[in-house]
């Protein structure tokens, strides 16, 4: 039995297989309509999430399966003090696979130790969110046609953004990748992420505080939100906030085939005017999330 706790649990070969399966699902949805008939997905969301939970539920429904679960800890026995281990031990008797989100880092590792059925980490605090990374990889493959030889701009909060860390880890295994790290000094990519993935794999990278200066060289710009509460003082926030907003002016300097990605929710870091630009991929990205989760459910349930 296999679980997905961390994106690095998957080999490049396994990621390629999942992407190929997701592409096949997109091309032939009818073939997959009953693949998970009589199977049940339990969505155990100990903290609220809209997109991820709905994406998992839609994925299971499109495979012909059923869904049960809870969408915040308040409606689960966690409020009575039940441990993750006990919750999972019980639920594994009711469902065939579990997608779990928990505010505590490492909770899915505990769940996997106690479960008789596959566990998918749907986000554990600020730690891992592997299905978002799979979504990002499928988006890149669909929109750029490759996962190698790309100049990838990561923009905004690179310090606390778990989606950025996982994407850096995943893309660092491909050849010809260059990262352009665009953030305020306060929100730079942590050194351990740089050491563990970028430097260890000898990957070319550049650090800058200006999106405008580098946007013309990017194949992908991956936007994240710069949050006011991450700054030590209001002045710095006010000085920097607009430089990380992607608008039509900055888009005019970008390549014609650059794509704009964002894990969502977006607040104001991408101006609404960019939505109609054909290079804006973030809503497509959310849709791809459903397909890659369908592929993942099939793989973990060992359904051909």
């Amino acid at each position: 039995m296999q679980n997905l706790i961390d994106i690095m649990d998957l080999s490049i070969g396994e990621i390629d297989e999942l992407i190929a399966k997701a592409k096949d699902i997109i091309a032939h949805p009818d073939v997959y309509r009953d693949k998970c008939r009589y199977k049940k997905l339990a969505t155990l969301f100990f903290e609220p999430s809209t997109r991820t939970r709905l994406s998992f539920e839609a994925a299971m429904m499109e495979l012909g399966g059923n869904v049960l679960g809870f969408s915040d800890a308040g409606s689960s026995s966690a409020t009575k003090g039940e441990s993750v281990s006990d919750t999972v031990a019980v639920v594994s008797g009711y469902a065939d696979i579990i997608a779990m989100r928990h505010p505590k880092e490492g909770a899915p590792v505990v769940a996997a130790m106690k479960s008789d059925i596959p566990i998918i980490n749907a986000g554990d605090g600020g730690h891992n969110h592997p299905t978002q990374t799979l979504t990002d990889l499928l988006t890149i493959k669909m929109e750029k046609g490759r996962l190698d030889n790309l100049t990838v701009g990561l923009c905004g909060d690179l310090k606390f953004g778990r989606t950025v860390h996982s994407l850096v880890a995943a893309l660092s295994r491909y050849t010809g990748i260059k990262f352009v790290l665009i953030s305020p000094q306060e929100l730079k990519l942590p050194s351990y992420v740089k050491e563990s993935y970028i430097k260890k794999n000898g990957i070319e990278y550049e650090q800058t505080t200006s999106l405008e200066d580098v946007i013309d060289q990017l194949d992908i710009v991956y936007m994240t939100r710069v949050q006011r509460e991450r700054f030590f003082n209001e002045e710095d926030y006010l000085r920097l906030k607009d430089s990380y907003i992607l608008d039509a002016g900055k888009m005019s300097k970008a390549k014609d085939d650059m794509i704009v990605m964002h894990p969502l929710p977006r607040v104001n870091e991408i101006a609404v005017e960019v939505d109609s630009d054909p290079r804006a991929c973030y809503f497509k990205q959310a849709k791809y999330g459903k397909y890659i989760r369908m592929a993942l459910i099939l793989k973990l349930l060992e359904v051909e």
């Binding site: 441990s83 281990s85 505590k104 880092e105 490492g106 909770a107 505990v110 554990d124």
Partner: peptide, 13 residues
Amino acid sequence: KNPRCITTTEQGI
């Protein structure tokens, strides 16, 4: 020592 780690709340691990 990570206050956000599951070991801070989960008993018996």
